[in-house]
Amino acid sequence: MTGNANTPRNEVINANCIDAMRTFDRGSVDFILTDPPYVTRFRDRQGRTVANDDNGRWLRPAFNQMHRVLKDGGFCVSFYGWNKVDLFMDAWKSAGFRVVGHLVFRKRYASSARFLRYEHEQAYLLAKGNVSLPEHPIPDVLDFPYTGNKLHPTQKPVEALRPLIEAFTEPGDVLLDPFCGSGSTPAAAQQLGRDWIGIELDGNHARTASKRLASRQHHRAAA
C-alpha cells in the first residue's frame, strides 16, 4: 500500500465520517467493515437512538468516500436496513462498488416482532475493481451472538465480525469502520493483528470505543 501518510492507524476519530475520510489518502485502506444507520428512525426499549438514522442524505457521499479510500481490489462489507435497501443499493452502485455477495447473520432471538419475528441481520459484500477470490471462502450464513447492547443500541458482536476480517484481510492490513459505534469492528481487527481506523459521530460512543480499544491493547501488551 502506498501514499497513506495522511491516513491514521489504530485511532478512533470523533467526527463526521465524510469529513474525516476526505482527509485520507486515496486507496489507503485494505478493507471496510461497517454498520451504518439503517435510516429507520430506530429507538430501542430504553429510548436510545442512532445519529443520522432519520435521514439518508449522508448515504451517497459516505460511500463515495469509502470507495475512494479503499484500495483497488479491496472489499467492503456493509450492513443495511432491509426496508431501505433501495437507498443503500443506489449509494453503493453510484459510488462504483460491485455487489458480489450477501450475508445473513442468524440470531437466536427476535430483535422485534411485527409482521414477522425479525431474527436476522444482513449485509452485502461489495467489491472495488478487479478483486481476487478469497483463499478460504466463508459461509454466507453466520451466527450472531447476543451482545446485550450494553455499549450501544445496535452493538454488533465481535464473534460475528472476526470471520469476515479473517477472510478478506491479512495480518498488518488496515481496516476501516466509518460508523464504528462502540468499537466492535476495530476490536475484532485488533484481536486478529490488523491495523484499524474507527470513525464515530457521537462523542459518547467514540469515547466508549476509545476506552474499549485501549483496554484491549493494554491487556495484549501485558500478556
Rank of each mutant, 00 (worst) to 15 (best):
Y124T: 05
Y124W: 12
L125M: 09
L126T: 04
A127W: 05
A127R: 06
K128E: 04
K128L: 05
K128M: 06
G129E: 02
V131H: 04
S132K: 14
S132H: 07
L133Y: 07
P134R: 07
H136A: 14
P137F: 03
I138C: 05
D140G: 03
V141N: 09
L142I: 15
L142R: 10
L142A: 06
L142Q: 13
L142T: 04
F144S: 04
F144D: 06
F144C: 13
Y146T: 02
Y146M: 09
Y146V: 03
Y146W: 12
L151G: 09
H152A: 09
H152T: 09
H152R: 10
H152W: 10
P153I: 12
P153R: 11
P153N: 13
P153K: 12
T154C: 15
P157Q: 07
P157N: 08
V158P: 00
E159P: 00
E159K: 02
A160Y: 04
A160K: 02
A160C: 06
A160P: 04
L161R: 00
R162I: 13
P163A: 07
I165Y: 08
I165G: 07
E166P: 00
F168L: 12
F168M: 03
F168T: 01
T169N: 02
T169A: 15
E170A: 14
D173L: 03
V174W: 02
V174H: 01
L175P: 01
L176K: 05
D177C: 06
D177I: 05
F179P: 00
C180D: 07
C180A: 11
G183E: 08
G183A: 11
G183L: 09
S184A: 15
S184N: 09
S184M: 07
T185R: 01
T185D: 02
P186W: 10
P186M: 11
P186A: 11
A187P: 00
Q190W: 03
L192F: 06
G193H: 11
R194L: 07
R194T: 09
R194Y: 10
R194I: 08
D195G: 08
W196L: 11
W196I: 09
I197R: 04
G198Y: 08
I199N: 01
I199T: 02
L201A: 13
L201K: 13
